[in-house]
């Protein structure tokens, strides 16, 4: 029983050997040329098949992979998002520090004014105060009460603003979550790419549409569908809708 190689080349090799033994140069080279051409054709067919495989693999990958999108759009967007987080945290920290710095002197002034009143007040309590000192103390007390009332309003206002400034944590947290989701998607796409390059097989990716859950804060520099620019816009839009 002949093996495939013998089936394929046996006849030609035999003819080649015969031509060699007979010293028939014309027949020998004719057989040799035929052999080489067949070999070339086989190589060409193999190469074409390989190219076709590669092309369809690339095509398939390009068609349904998120990797292109991720690399070209989402990753640069993520950089912008993280940059925005940096800005939000920076602004909130500075806002908070400003308010603390503004409140400190007010508290100090109030404490100082109270201290200044203590001595004459003690003299008054001990019934040892001179009439002139008493009048001075009363004037001081008037000013103190007035100043404290307005100063404490100011401090209260500052505290309320410090409170609101902490809202950055929610906004930046939402953005960071979005970037974490992107990293997960990137990981899935890369694992797919590795798998594809190894076996040519592909798996279904789970890229969920989370629009219903919300899209998170607007990021300056990232273009999306029309968004409002602030509360005034929201109010105008809603009043147009009768809300």
């Amino acid at each position: 029983m002949s093996n495939p190689l013998q089936a394929e080349f046996g006849e030609t090799i035999a003819a080649l050997a015969d031509a060699l033994a007979a010293d028939n140069e014309g027949a020998f080279f004719a057989e040799l040329d035929g052999l080489l051409q067949r070999r070339e054709r086989m190589l060409f067919l193999d190469l074409r098949k390989l190219t076709g495989d590669l092309q369809s693999a690339l095509q398939r990958f390009r068609m349904d992979s998120r990797l292109m999108d991720l690399a070209q759009k989402d990753v640069p967007d993520a950089r912008l998002r993280l940059d925005h987080v940096l800005r939000l945290t920076d602004e909130a920290a500075h806002r908070t520090l400003d308010l603390v710095e503004q409140s400190g002197p007010i508290a100090e002034r109030t404490a100082q004014a109270a201290n200044d009143l203590m001595e004459p007040w003690q003299q008054f309590r001990d019934r040892k105060i001179a009439a002139e000192d008493f009048h001075r103390m009363v004037r001081k007390m008037d000013a103190f009460l007035l100043a404290t009332s307005s100063d404490m309003d100011k401090v209260r206002e500052h505290l309320s603003e410090v409170l609101l400034a902490q809202g950055y944590q929610d906004l930046s947290g939402q953005i960071i979550r979005g970037v974490m989701k992107l990293v997960t998607e990137l990981e899935i796409a890369l694992v797919d790419l590795v798998r594809l390059s190894q076996t040519g097989a592909r798996t279904a990716r789970q890229v969920s549409d989370e629009t219903r859950r919300g899209l998170g804060p607007q990021i300056p520099g990232i273009k999306t569908s029309p968004a409002v620019s602030g509360q005034q816009d929201v109010d105008a839009l809603l009043s147009g809708l009768g809300v």
Binding site: Q218, T224, V228, V234, L238, L241
Partner: peptide
């Protein structure tokens, strides 16, 4: 923080009484 016009409209249609961004 949701600021898309279509989202605000959707919330209004769902019966929201107020929307603060």
């Amino acid at each position: 923080a949701e600021a898309k016009r279509e989202q605000i409209i959707e919330a209004a249609q769902a019966g929201v009484n107020g929307y603060v961004i």
